[in-house]
Design a protein around this nucleic acid. Structure first.
Lengths: 340, 340
DNA sequence: CTGAAAGCGCTTACAG
DNA sequence: CTGAAAGCGCTTACAG
C-alpha cells in the first residue's frame, strides 16, 4: 500500500471507502447512489449496503465542485418579517429538504437592485435552482438568470410568457372578487387603503378599480395609498384618516390583513360600528383575522400551496424531468366573515 | 502553452486567472483575498485590482473542499411559524451575510430527536458554524457538536457551563418580573396559562412559581398547562376556561403574547372587563400587542439583539479571535400597558 | 453495464 | 513574505 507523502486526514468516509468495501470502482458507487439507471441492480444493492454500513454521507462540496452545481436552492423573498413569505419559505424548505436540497434565504426588501446584488453573489454558489418573488426584476437580473441556465420558478403571480416558470394566482382577480363581494353586500362608497405599494398590491388595486368601474362606482378620491411598511398601527391610523376625510365611505378594502386588523381595533377604540357604519375587508387571511371583533372578511391566499408547488416544479426542472405545465394557478378563496 | 486533453470549460474566472493577471502565484492571490496578513501590501493591492477587473468571485465549493469548512452557518430553530424565531433568524442572517457566510435553516419542531437528525445531515455540509436554540439537546447531538469542533452558539437562554457559548436572557427571571409586577399592582389570585410547554415556557413557569411562593400566594390550581401549539384562538379558549373554572382569578399571565392577544379578544367578545375584572399579561411583546384593547402588558424579549450578538460571537469563534465573554445576557424589558 | 484518467478550483503543509 | 506540489472528494467525458 503506497503511503502518500502528505495525507490531510479529514477522517471522512469517502466514495473510495465504499467502493473498496463493495468491491467496485468509485464511479460505480457514485452512479449507484445517485440512482443512475445504468447500474446493475445487484451492484446497487451491494453498494447501498456498504454505504449504509460505513455510514457514508456524500460530500456536498466535492459534488458541487465536480458537477458545477450545488445542492442549494436560493429563495429570494421581499421580507422575512411578513408571515406571507415565511409561510412560503417554510413550504419550500419542507419540500426540498427530503429531496436533498438546502434552502438559502435571500431578503430583497422589495428592492430590485438589492435583488440583483443578491443574485450576483448567490450565483457564485452555483445554486441548483432559484425561486424568486414576482416579475419585478432588473434587466441585469433577468439576463443573469437566463445566462446562468439555473432553473428558476417565479412565485406569487403567474405568467404564460415563453420559457418562464411560475406558480401563483391572479392578484388582480382576487382584488376584483373581494370588491365585488362588497358591492353585492350593498356597499356603495368603497374605499381602498394600501401601503407598501409593491407590484402585487398595485395589482389588487387594479382589480378593485376594474370592479368599481364596471359598476360605475369608481372614485379615485377613495384610494388611500401610503408607501410605508404595513403594520397594525398604520392600519389604525389610515382607518381614522379615511373616515375623517371621507365620512361617507361605507366600506374599506385594505390591501393586507395586518392593516385591516389595525383598522378593526381602531374602530373598537373609536366606537365605530363594523360593519354597521363601515365594513372592513382585508387580504391574505393572516393569523388572528378569524379572532377579530368582528371576524375579518378577507381573501385566503394559498402561500403554503404556492411554496410546495414551486418547489415541486423546481425539482422537476433540476432533474430535467418533463413538466406538466410551466404555469400553475393555485387560485384564491374569498372568506366571508362578520366584518362585511 | 500545453493544451489539456479534456478541458471542462466552466467559463469561470478562477484564482489562476487573477494570479496570471497580477503576475503572482495562485497561493498569493488566495492569501491576499482572504486578508491573511503575511502578504506585502503592494501585492495585495495588485491582486485586488486584478480580481476586481476580472470580476473574480471565489468558488465556495472549491474553498469548502480544500479547507474542509464551508461558508455556511446552520441555524436550528423550533419553528418558522413563530415571529420570535423568525426575528432571530433575520438578525443572524443580516449579520452573517456581509461577512461572507450563508445561513442555512433548520426547523426542529421542538423535537430534540428531529434536531439530532438535522444535525447529522447538516454536519455533512461541513458548516463553518452552528447556532442552536436552548440547551435541550439529545446526548448524541451534544457529542456530535463537540466532536465536530464546529463553533456553536446557543441562543435564548444562557449558561456559564465550561466551553459552552450562549446568548440570551433568564426566562425564569423574566417570568418572575412580570408576576412581581402583577403582585405590585395588587392582584392576588394570579393564574398562569401556558401552551407548547417547551423548556423556556417551563422556565417562565418556574419564575412565576418562585415569585408567588415568595409572596405566599402560590396556588398550583391556578396553573393551566396545555401541550398544544400556541395560537390566538387557543388563547381565547383557555381564557374562557380559566374564568369558568376559577371565577376568583383576578389576573392571568399568559406564557406568550399570541395567547394573551387571544385572551383579550375573547374578553371583548364576552364583555369581561380588562383589567377591571381580570388583568392580562403576556410575554415577548409580539406584533400587535401595543394595538390591543386595552394594550397588552408584556415582557419585551430582545430576539433581534440575541441574533446579532450570537452571530457576532460566532464570527469571532470562526475567525479564532479572542472572545470577550462566552455568555452574553441581553436582558429583557417589562412593558407596562393598559391590560394590567 | 463498468472503469481508468483527468479535472473541478481552491487551500494546506512544507520549504525557502 | 512567497511559491511548487499535493490533495480535498467527487463527477464528467471518453472508452470498451
Amino acid at each position: 500500500m503506497p503511503s502518500p507523502r502528505r495525507p490531510r486526514a479529514t477522517g471522512r468516509v469517502t466514495l473510495g471507502d465504499v467502493a473498496a468495501a463493495a468491491g467496485v470502482s468509485p464511479i460505480t458507487v457514485s452512479r449507484a447512489l445517485r440512482g443512475e439507471r445504468s447500474v446493475a441492480a445487484e451492484l446497487v444493492e451491494r453498494v447501498r449496503a456498504a454505504a449504509q454500513q460505513l455510514g457514508y454521507v456524500p460530500d456536498p462540496a466535492a459534488r458541487a465542485l465536480a458537477s458545477a452545481r450545488s445542492s442549494h436552492v436560493a429563495v429570494l423573498i421581499p421580507l422575512l418579517t411578513n408571515t406571507l413569505f415565511v409561510d412560503l419559505l417554510e413550504a419550500v424548505h419542507r419540500t426540498l429538504l427530503p429531496a436533498g436540497y438546502q434552502t438559502l434565504i435571500g431578503v430583497t426588501h422589495y428592492d430590485p437592485l438589492e435583488e440583483e446584488q443578491l443574485l450576483n453573489s448567490y450565483m457564485a454558489h452555483r445554486p441548483a435552482g432559484l425561486i424568486v418573488t414576482g416579475f419585478d426584476h432588473t434587466e441585469a437580473s433577468r439576463h443573469l438568470i437566463a445566462a446562468s441556465r439555473v432553473p428558476c420558478v417565479h412565485v406569487m403571480e403567474t405568467t404564460h410568457a415563453e420559457g418562464v416558470h411560475s406558480v401563483g394566482f391572479s392578484q388582480a382577480d382576487a382584488g376584483h372578487a373581494i370588491t365585488a363581494h362588497l358591492l353585492a353586500r350593498g356597499y356603495k362608497r368603497i374605499a381602498f387603503v394600501a401601503t407598501q405599494l409593491d407590484p402585487r398590491v398595485m395589482q389588487r388595486a387594479e382589480g378593485y378599480r376594474r370592479c368599481l368601474r364596471e359598476a360605475g362606482r369608481y372614485d379615485p378620491k377613495l384610494e388611500l395609498l401610503n408607501p410605508e411598511r404595513s403594520s397594525l398601527a398604520l392600519g389604525g391610523q389610515l382607518f381614522e384618516q379615511m373616515l375623517r376625510t371621507h365620512p361617507d365611505v361605507d366600506a374599506i378594502f385594505f390591501c393586507n390583513d395586518d392593516l385591516a386588523q389595525g383598522g378593526l381595533l381602531a374602530a373598537l377604540r373609536l366606537g365605530v360600528a363594523v360593519p354597521g357604519t363601515v365594513a372592513v375587508a382585508g387580504f391574505n387571511d393572516l393569523n388572528g383575522s378569524d379572532q377579530m371583533l368582528p371576524p375579518l372578511t378577507t381573501v385566503r391566499t394559498p402561500r403554503t400551496r404556492i411554496g410546495e408547488e414551486a418547489a415541486r416544479m423546481l425539482l422537476a426542472l433540476m432533474r430535467r424531468e418533463p413538466l406538466a405545465q410551466t404555469s400553475v394557478d393555485v387560485g384564491y378563496q374569498l372568506i366571508v366573515r362578520g366584518s362585511t
